[in-house]
Structures are given as C-alpha cells and as structure tokens.
Design a binder for these strands. Structure first.
Lengths: 199, 199
DNA sequence: GTCTATACGACGATAGAC
DNA sequence: GTCTATCGTCGTATAGAC
C-alpha cells in the first residue's frame, strides 16, 4: 500500500499551520498568540513549525502575502468582468462585504490589524497591490470621465471609505445585520460623491 | 524654603507616565513597549509606576480614556459653536485633520490601534462617546432635512469615512502633504454624498 | 511616594532522537 | 519531516529599604 496516502505532504502541513495561524491572529491578535497556541490549534508540533518557517514573524508574513495574493486575484477578475468604473467599484465593495461575512478572519487580518507592529518590513496595507489596483481603477474612471477629476487618493478615499468603515464597524460588532444588506445604501451615496453625473 | 517646589506632586508623576506611554505606544505599539521602556522614557521608576497604576493594562486604559474625554470635549464645543450640520461636520473633519498633524500620537492611538487586543473590557472606538456624538450630529442633520434620510450608520460612514481613511493613510506615511491641504477636496464630495441638496 | 533588586512565569527558538 | 524536551531571555509584577 502506498504510504503517500497516510503521509502529510509538506504543503498540507504548511497549510494547516497557516490557516490555524490566521484564525488565532484574527481572534486574539499576533502578540496574544504564542507559537505553542499555533501548534495546538493546527495539530502540528512546535519543532515542525520551526522546520517550515524561520520564526513567528515569517508565519505572519506568509499568511499576509497569501491573503494579499488572493485579494489581488479577485479584484483583477472583477476588473476584467466589468467595463464601466461604476460597475467595477460596486462589485469590489460587494466582494469585500461578502468576504467579511463569510470569512471575517480574512478581512480582520487584511485591513484591521496593525501589521507594522509585527511585520516591520512590510509596507502598509494601503500600499499593497490590491489597494493599488483599486486606485488604478479609479484613475481609469477619471480618464473615462466617469469620475470627477481630483486627487487620486482623495477620490479613492471618498469612493471606498464608507464601505471600509462599514466593514470595520461590522467586525467590531457594532453593526448587527450582514453587510450585503447595506450594499445599495452604501453604494448610492459613495458613487454620488465622486461621479461626474448629478443623480 | 517651601519643599513643595522641588517635590513632584502625584498628578505630575502620573502625567509624565501617561504622556511617555502615549508616545511609546504610538511609536512601537502596546506589545512592543515594556514597562521598563515607560520607566526610562518618563524618568519615573518601575516601582513608582506600579504605585500609581495597577498594571500595564491600567496605564493603557488611562491613556485611552483621557484621549476619549479630550476628543469628546472638543467635538462638543464644535457642536455648540456651529448651527448647521454641514458646518459642524466640516469643522469636525478640520479638527481631526489638524490634530493628526499636530499630535499624530493622539490620532494614532485613538483610531488606529487595536484596543481589543490589550483592552478587552473597553468597547470598540466607534462606540465611544465622541463617535456617538458625531452620529448624534448626523441624526440631527437628518431631522433638519440637511441630510438625506437613511440608516444612521450608513450616513455617518459616508460622511466621515473618506476623512478617516485619509487620516490612516497619512499616519501610514502614504500621503506626503499635510491633511489640512485636502480639507476642501475631501469635504465637498463627502457632503455631496449625503446632502439633500444637489450640488 | 519613590526607588532598587529580584522573583516568577511565559515565550521564542533550538537540540537532537526518531 | 516530525516530534519532545529544554535552554535562555525578557517582561510583568512584587518586596522591601528609604
């Protein structure tokens, strides 16, 4: 009988470590989570963890870049599926709202933890590729005259700021109803803020 | 000669501890700051610190409630100085922008640190009194028909979300120019988003 | 009230057997 | 590659002199 069936591949072990880490970090934060906690939660021993990752920081770094990659892929796909800027941005907000409900740990870790405190090398989230792509989309919207001409950072903040605040409020438990409920309510004024058309 | 001149009053010692703590927390974060650090930075010994505060968490708690009180006082004053909702909200954003430039530690600690990770008892920032007052102001704006009738959380997020995002971006070092530069640019679309008037 | 010195525990990380 | 056992460090908090 092929022993490979019962054997954990390195990738499976790594994945178990990473998903356990994400859950713990989002629940208790980086500093309140010990490597021992990760070992227990993932079912992988401390020694094994240190075999796969240089140190605790490297685990956090891997979790982070995994999520960044995933977000980027998703937003890229949204970009290619929609043509008008308004559809694109609306779809991005819808996606962010959905993932906040279905995998709160992901959003919690992505845009609601202070990475600088434990990943000093990493640039801030809003300089990450997904956020850059979102600004790129806004920029295209200006060129297409869908969005009023203004500072790019200002426009992006106006367009996505409200949605992002709703997300953090929801993660804080201040909002009871699921976010998708508010999609229309948030989108209409957000778009109104920057659109070239007077609604 | 009156010895009181050379003697530190308890209040002065406490204040030294609190301001040193605020600076360190905002620079390095709660968990990267040891009580030893606070002792060195404030010039107060560890023993003295523990005489005034039960534990490290209590120091953080005191810093936090001090800042909340201060913000609340400031916003209350703004509320009484302005009558129209638009003036009030604009003044609040102007105030937040100013304090972000003049005392970045304050804003850093107020709305850009994960309090839940080290102050488990404290309710989230957005449930704090200053934020409640901001929502109150928005609510009055709806009653006065200055702001479109909609969910209060949604309206508040739309009105202040962009400004708050600009603040965190600025604290992250992603925005180079001082925030007050952007006041008009942020205010116009933010107000447009929720105003009953079509601009 | 303020200080120094120290106890105590927890954590990150390693060593070395299997 | 995975495990258990352990080391050294550091951080919180206390004891006790002044």
């Amino acid at each position: 009988m092929d022993s490979a069936i019962n054997k954990q591949t390195p990738l499976m072990t790594q994945q178990k470590i990473l998903s356990a880490t994400l859950m713990l970090f989002s629940k208790k934060g980086y500093f309140n989570t010990s490597v021992r906690d990760i070992a227990h939660e993932s079912g992988v021993s401390i020694g094994s963890i240190y075999h796969h990752f240089k140190d605790k920081e490297a685990i956090a770094s891997a979790v982070y870049s995994n999520l960044v990659e995933r977000m980027l892929a998703e937003i890229t796909q949204i970009q290619s599926k929609h043509i008008r800027t308004s559809s694109r941005c609306r779809a991005i907000i819808a996606f962010l709202f959905d993932i906040t409900e279905q995998e709160p740990e992901v959003m919690e870790f992505m845009l609601y933890s202070k990475h600088r405190e434990f990943l000093p090398e990493e640039p801030p989230v809003c300089s990450s590729k997904p956020f850059e792509l979102m600004r790129e989309i806004v920029k295209d919207g200006m060129l297409a005259n869908e969005i009023q001409s203004m500072d790019l950072m200002v426009a992006s903040s106006c367009l996505f700021g409200a949605a992002l605040r709703m997300i953090t409020s929801r993660l804080d438990g201040v909002i009871e109803k699921p976010l998708p409920t508010y999609l229309e309510a948030i989108w209409t004024p957000s778009w109104r803020a920057v659109s070239t058309q007077t609604l």
